[in-house]
């Protein structure tokens, strides 16, 4: 149901029945290693190319979600997913193996929440009984496409971010009661472009999109930031997160700084060489579907707002000196008693 200008309220409260998360070696050394279902020891994951390894990540996360939700793939009506690679082939190839009717999504790093919002909407409107949604990224495959070869010895500035190797998938079902996390509302963001061109500073470019979506969410739903125990952004990193916080304060939203977190800062340890933090479609997906859902189940958080941000650039637009258009989608998740 539409509420306000750009938000949906899910009155039937679709349930996140199960989640699956897979990750690579760098994540295994990170802060949230315990929240991953599958961790790989090397970036190849037994495949002969990084793109194939990327597909494996997505497939494994999806299968883990199905297994934990005790569902067969024939019970699931749709699969909504995406990644960062050209024509989102890793997700499409994993959809081939999953044999579930499939929507391919592209929202760069905001794909995870784009998928969750759409899945919730479909279930809320009786379009399906169960939907699998997820997003993935693979460091080496993404670096290869967007930046330089993996082994190239170029120096990254401190504003750069580290693409997460990982995939997160959630199995969304109709609410059958019980103690599960449910989605209650979602706000779809508009593309914001404030003229930044540096592809090594995506956090700074994405911050206004995040701030705009968060502000729109509270505006549309007539809520106060104190409604949430945690507002978590996707992959703004150090710079973007600070900037977004200031933008929100300027808009008159008083958020407790403790309650304003970023997935890109949560996932890695301080001493890992990730410059400004983690990024990538897999960043928000792994942190939300792994760490945050676990924390909610443990009762740490009751209501959270997840704002996944995406920079909708391509290597081509960067070379043609186009500015970076950014987007953010927010989904509110609540723990149902």
């Amino acid at each position: 149901m539409l509420k306000g200008k750009q938000s949906w309220v899910f009155s039937s409260r679709p349930a996140i029945a199960a989640t699956g998360v897979s990750g690579g070696p760098f994540e295994a050394n990170g802060k949230l290693a315990a929240d991953f279902d599958i961790l790989h020891e090397d970036l190849w994951m037994g495949e002969d190319s990084y793109e194939k390894a990327h597909r494996v990540l997505m497939e494994e996360a999806s299968r883990a979600a199905l297994r934990k939700g005790q569902m067969e793939k024939k019970d699931v009506q749709f699969f909504l997913g995406g990644d960062l690679i050209n024509q989102i082939t890793p997700t499409s190839l994993s959809a081939r193996a999953l044999e579930i009717p499939y929507f391919g999504l592209f929202g760069a790093c905001s794909t995870s929440m784009e998928g969750l919002a759409l899945a919730s909407f479909i279930i809320n409107n009786q379009g399906a009984n169960a939907i699998l949604t997820g997003a993935a990224s693979h460091n080496a495959a993404v670096e290869k496409q967007f930046r330089y070869p993996t082994e190239y010895g170029g120096q990254k500035p401190p504003t750069a971010q580290w693409t997460v190797t990982g995939a997160g998938a959630a199995l969304l079902t109709k609410n059958n009661g019980g103690s599960v996390p449910v989605t209650t509302s979602a706000t779809i963001g508009k593309v914001m472009d404030l003229g930044l061109t540096d592809p090594f500073n995506m956090g700074g470019a994405m911050a206004p999109a995040a701030a705009d979506t968060i502000a729109a969410h509270f505006q549309d739903l007539q809520l106060d930031p104190s409604h949430y125990d945690l507002i978590v952004t996707g992959d703004l990193g150090k710079i973007g997160q600070e900037t977004a916080y200031e933008l929100l304060t300027d808009k008159g939203l008083n958020i407790d700084q403790e309650k304003f977190q970023d997935c890109g800062l949560l996932i890695y340890k301080e001493n890992q060489p990730v410059q400004s933090g983690g990024s990538g479609a897999g960043c928000s997906a792994t942190v939300l579907y792994g760490h945050l859902i676990n924390q909610m189940k443990q009762g740490v958080y009751k209501r959270i707002l997840v704002v996944a941000t995406g920079a909708l650039l391509s290597p081509l637009t960067v070379q043609q000196k186009e500015t970076i258009p950014c987007i953010a989608h927010a989904v509110s998740i609540e723990m149902q008693n």
């Binding site: 500035p157 401190p158 504003t159 404030l194 003229g195 930044l196 700074g204 150090k238 710079i239 200031e246």
Partner: peptide, 12 residues
């Protein structure tokens, strides 16, 4: 915005 963002940017 760019002025605001500059303030938070980690300098090389």
């Amino acid at each position: 915005y760019q002025q605001l963002e500059q303030k938070h940017e980690t300098k090389r």
